[in-house]
Amino acid sequence: MSGRAANIRRGLGLGLGWRVAALKNGFRDATVYRIEFISEIFGAAFVPAAIQAVLWYAIFKVGGATEIAGMNYSELVRYTLATILFTQIRGGDHDFELMEMIRTGQLSNYLLRPVGVIEFVYIRGVASRLLIAGICLLLGMGVGIWFGLSPGRMLGAMFLAVLGNVIHYQIGSVLATIAFLWEDAYSLLMVKNMAVSILSGELLPLNLFPEATQWVWKSLPFYLYVFGPAQYALGHWSHVEFARNLAIAFLWILFFWGAIRISWKWGMKTYVSVGG
């Protein structure tokens, strides 16, 4: 019995070991090119926020509007500021990395190792996002106090944003399997990212969508990346609504977990390594 228990403990330790190592590597990768890392964060935060701010400026300050979709200027600016925190978490190009591995045959190297390739690529790639999430959380909690935002809500919102990051990668992993069939799945991943830019709420609050088209973003998981976390952080969602959306996020994760298993099982049957 004790031998079996030791084996299980060793097994668990091994499983955790490569994950921790991959995460550490990811952190190291993210922080080696510090200037680029910082410029990426700055750019990714600044541009969508600046575009939003410009739109509000044009509508309210130049156009003289007082309210759109039930929100006034200061509410929209607060939404924009909140989205700066969450747009940092949603990205990551590790699905492109998966696609490239399939396309070039590099996948073969990973198939020989005792690690799950999809999980490995994610853990290594997510390190930078976790680092950013930590910084944004501290920033959000600190600055949020001035705006009357609850630190507890900020924590919950950041957790939802991290779940959004998982879903984003899962969708990318499923789409990347197109590379098994077709040389270039790049376009599909690009289309997905473009759809995310508008349907996640990083460019506009999704409640600005006309009533007749609200179903579009509600029936996709993208709103959980930015719009959902921002709504909860700003107090527009009750705790019950947050819990419901958290459950929805987990259901999406479960759904895409199944989709990954099916698509990769199919993909591996058709895989022909072209690596040397």
């Binding site: 044009a58 156009g63 759109i68 830019s197 508008i198 506009l204 969508f209």
Partner: peptide
């Protein structure tokens, strides 16, 4: 399509944007 949709959403809420 996305660029056009972005403005379609904005103009569903306001008639004119900076003239």
């Amino acid at each position: 399509g996305i660029e056009l949709s972005l403005f379609a959403v904005i103009y569903s809420n306001v008639p004119v944007l900076a003239g």
